[in-house]
Amino acid sequence: MSVLPLIFTAGWASGINAYAVVLLLGLFGRTGLSDEVPEALQRTDVLIAAAVLFAIEAVADKIPFLDSFWDSVHTVVRPAAGAVVAGLLADQDGSISQLAAGAVGGTTALVSHLVKAGTRMAINTSPEPASNIVMSTAEDVTVAGVITLAIFYPVAAAICAAVLLVIGVVLVVFLATRIRRYLRRRRARREGREQPAV
């Protein structure tokens, strides 16, 4: 069976939390629950690094405005991670070329990352921090659930990921005015800092 559904799902999830994807896939491979996880993701050093970075992201992602800074830093990291994980999965399976898999994983990760970052900008227009914590926790639980589903039912997981991706894109378009308000506020704050004191 083709590993493409798992590649698509891992790409979508990497755009939201790449470290969780690497950690979960590695643990599923390490415990023998999946034969499709490459050895590179099961290495102890990779699992430790992914766990530490996941813990850092779990905190940073729940703090208003720090989450958007974290997202901007990860605009390159998440799509790259999605492409690398996809390439490793393709190499393990052999049913799809690594280049094609990397393109699917990286592109899907980029789109889901942009959805996440856009949604967070909209949430950051709200003055209270609870919405960030709720949203971040929901993202982490969803990523864990969909990646777990992908190990056992890859096609069902890919369908879930595709539906969530479409809903996310529609939501970001709907929230575009709040996102623009966040960007204007950030620009004004930056320009205020740059003006010399009289």
Rank of each mutant, 00 (worst) to 15 (best):
160 C>V: 15
79 P>R: 01
40 A>Y: 11
67 D>T: 09
7 I>A: 05
186 R>M: 00
105 G>I: 01
65 F>S: 03
96 I>E: 01
94 G>I: 14
12 W>D: 00
121 M>D: 02
127 P>E: 02
13 A>L: 00
78 R>S: 03
148 T>I: 09
62 K>G: 05
108 T>M: 07
93 D>T: 12
94 G>V: 07
194 E>M: 13
97 S>Y: 05
123 I>R: 03
91 D>F: 09
12 W>F: 15
53 L>V: 02
162 A>L: 12
121 M>V: 04
182 Y>N: 02
177 T>N: 08
169 V>C: 10
60 A>T: 06
165 L>Q: 07
176 A>E: 07
68 S>P: 06
101 A>I: 12
154 P>S: 10
44 T>I: 15
30 R>Q: 14
104 V>W: 01
166 V>A: 14
191 E>K: 14
72 S>G: 07
96 I>H: 04
79 P>A: 06
163 V>E: 06
123 I>T: 06
21 V>H: 06
157 A>W: 01
109 A>M: 10
146 V>P: 00
92 Q>F: 08
58 A>P: 03
121 M>Q: 05
60 A>Y: 00
109 A>L: 03
70 W>G: 03
197 A>K: 07
168 G>K: 02
191 E>P: 03
36 E>Y: 12
116 K>Q: 09
60 A>D: 02
175 L>S: 02
6 L>Y: 08
120 R>D: 05
47 L>Q: 07
194 E>C: 11
49 A>H: 08
195 Q>V: 07
154 P>D: 01
163 V>W: 08
175 L>H: 07
96 I>C: 04
172 V>G: 03
145 G>M: 09
103 A>G: 09
66 L>N: 00
93 D>S: 15
172 V>T: 11
26 G>Y: 10
41 L>R: 07
53 L>C: 07
156 A>W: 03
138 A>L: 15
126 S>W: 10
24 L>P: 05
140 D>P: 02
120 R>C: 06
53 L>E: 01
11 G>H: 11
148 T>N: 11
22 V>C: 13
168 G>E: 01
135 M>C: 14
187 R>P: 04
15 G>W: 02
75 T>D: 03
15 G>E: 01
163 V>Q: 10
6 L>M: 14
167 I>K: 13
109 A>T: 03
164 L>E: 06
3 V>M: 05
140 D>T: 05
160 C>G: 08
193 R>K: 08
94 G>C: 14
180 R>E: 11
153 Y>T: 14
71 D>N: 14
141 V>L: 14
52 V>G: 00
155 V>N: 11
126 S>M: 04
131 S>Y: 02
52 V>D: 06
75 T>M: 13
73 V>A: 04
174 F>Q: 04
113 H>Y: 00
26 G>R: 08
167 I>C: 09
9 T>E: 10
